[in-house]
Nucleic acid binder design. Structure first.
Length: 259
DNA sequence: ATGGTGGAGGGTCCA
């Protein structure tokens, strides 16, 4: 099975690109972030016609996440239980696989805006709550994948110009430490299980021709529990959709699981 | 240091 994550920066705008990409790249699960649309606007019918279920939690203007899946989603969890938050950033589902249940968590982690800002503090608090949530999910579901826009570049290999970015939001040490806490639960960054080309990124700023200069960051990740790590045979960043007209500023990350 | 672009929504806010 293949699973993927893609921050689409408005599903209203990007729906045709998502459907076209799924046509070329069938997925057992596709995690979407930044829908930027209310629940009633989520294009459930369009996905159904393409052969997919949709579990989602929408939000007007900002945030909103969805999991597109071939199998019918079960045990849908929206948001982080016990974490009071009006921003819709998390959804989790259980999917059937030949080896048994696979738990999929889709997350749009906060951006943080700038180190020291209120939004930065919110980001670090959010990560504490999210890590506790994932710890609980791991205890319940051995086969767990956590996919999303983490808004953290884990180390300098994931940054086009580490000197320029040093200490700033998305790469600061407290953020990287929060990311390592997640890994510390027993999760592995699927992309780093394999040899990769240098300067591989998943996001490029719209401004200053970021994509043309490959001035990007790797901030979209697929984390796998050990039982899924053991069956993961590939993880790639698909840069093709970033070359579309009217692209998202992010591009999909895909993991292949031999299940 | 500033501002560059894109999305949403009708002000600016967010990324």
């Amino acid at each position: 099975m293949r699973i993927a994550t893609w921050n689409v920066n408005s599903l209203t705008v990007r729906l045709p690109q998502v459907l076209a990409w799924l046509q070329d790249n069938p997925m057992e699960a596709l995690c979407l972030q930044e829908l930027k649309q209310a629940d009633e606007k989520v294009p459930v019918d369009a996905f159904r016609e393409a052969g997919y279920h949709v579990a989602f939690i929408g939000q007007k203007t900002y945030n909103g996440v969805a999991i597109i899946s071939k199998a019918e989603p079960r045990d849908i969890q929206r948001n982080i239980p016990g974490f009071d938050d009006d921003q819709q950033r998390v959804i989790a589902v259980t999917l059937d696989s030949p080896q048994g249940d696979v738990r999929i968590i889709c997350a749009y982690c906060p951006n943080g805006q700038a180190v020291g800002s209120d939004k930065y503090e919110y980001k670090l608090n959010w990560y504490r709550a999210f890590t506790a949530f994932v710890r609980g999910e791991m205890a319940k579901y051995p086969r767990l994948a956590v996919l999303g826009d983490y808004n953290i570049a884990p180390d300098d290999r994931d940054v086009h110009d580490p000197a320029k970015w040093e200490g700033s939001v998305l790469v600061s040490e407290p953020e990287r430490s929060a990311f390592r806490m997640l890994l510390g639960l027993g999760l592995s960054d699927a992309f780093r299980l394999f040899e990769q080309e240098p300067k591989m990124f998943s996001w490029w700023d719209y401004r200053m021709m970021g994509f043309r200069r490959n001035a990007g960051l790797r901030i979209d990740h697929i984390l796998l529990s050990d039982p899924l790590k053991a069956v993961c045979s590939a993880c790639i960043i698909d840069k093709v959709p970033r070359r579309n007209e009217q692209p998202s500023d992010h591009t999909p990350v895909v993991a292949t699981l031999d299940l």
